[in-house]
């Protein structure tokens, strides 16, 4: 956060006609506040899932067992992508735009692989959204998370698109890059909880 010495009235008269954006960039604060709010959405879904699980005789019911190997590989991909995107953030802080682009491209490919893996899982499971209450929860929760992965992917692609222009991002001007990274970490953390609840807990 940059600070400049305060003047007596907070702004010099020359600053008066300056437009709305005449204040430091608070977008990261805004995004974090938004994600706190978003996490309550997932919090509600997790709570519902656990209550349903506690009330059910068999969870998941026979015939709607989850697959484990593919989602585990998927988890591995998504968790590693969080480190990859962080390398991109490190790169831009050293003003290495090209390196940042490669790391972000790799993250995007990993994210797309995750989504493809999830789509393949949906197609190969043999039960659908309406089969039973577990299937309802399974598809709505993973689907809602998948939607977030998709949005994160769009943000990363947006960063890649904008960074074509030289000078758009630099070591002291990279809020957009940082926001895409924060969002991606959020999506990742949610997935770890989701994976634990839906997949790992079925083993116990």
């Amino acid at each position: 956060m940059q600070t400049s010495p305060p003047t007596l009235d907070g702004a010099s008269p020359a600053a008066a006609p300056a437009h709305h954006e005449a204040h430091p960039d608070y977008r990261v604060y805004g995004l974090v506040t938004f994600l706190v709010s978003e996490s309550l959405m997932f919090g509600a879904l997790f709570t519902i899932y656990l209550v349903f699980r506690g009330a059910a005789v068999a969870w998941p019911p026979e015939g709607t067992e989850v697959e484990l190997v593919l989602p585990a590989i998927n988890t591995l991909i998504l968790v590693s992508s969080s480190f990859v995107i962080h390398l991109g953030d490190q790169a831009i802080k050293k003003n290495q735009v090209v390196a940042m682009r490669w790391w972000y491209l790799l993250t995007a490919v990993m994210g797309a692989t995750f989504l493809a893996g999830q789509a393949y899982e949906y197609l190969s499971l043999g039960y659908g959204l309406t089969t039973n209450l577990f299937a309802n929860c399974f598809y709505v929760m993973t689907g809602f998370h998948g939607l977030h992965v998709f949005v994160g992917l769009l943000m990363i692609l947006g960063v890649l698109w904008r960074s074509r222009r030289p000078g758009h991002y630099s070591d002291h001007k990279h809020v957009g890059i940082e926001m895409a990274e924060i969002y991606w970490h959020f999506v990742d953390i949610i997935w770890v909880i989701l994976f634990t609840l839906i997949y790992v807990l079925t083993l116990f």
Partner: peptide, 16 residues
């Protein structure tokens, strides 16, 4: 403290 609210002087973006 007042220093917590930095006021940056950006280039004016057009007339209102």
């Amino acid at each position: 403290t007042p220093a917590q609210i930095p006021v940056q002087t950006l280039v004016p973006q057009g007339e209102h």
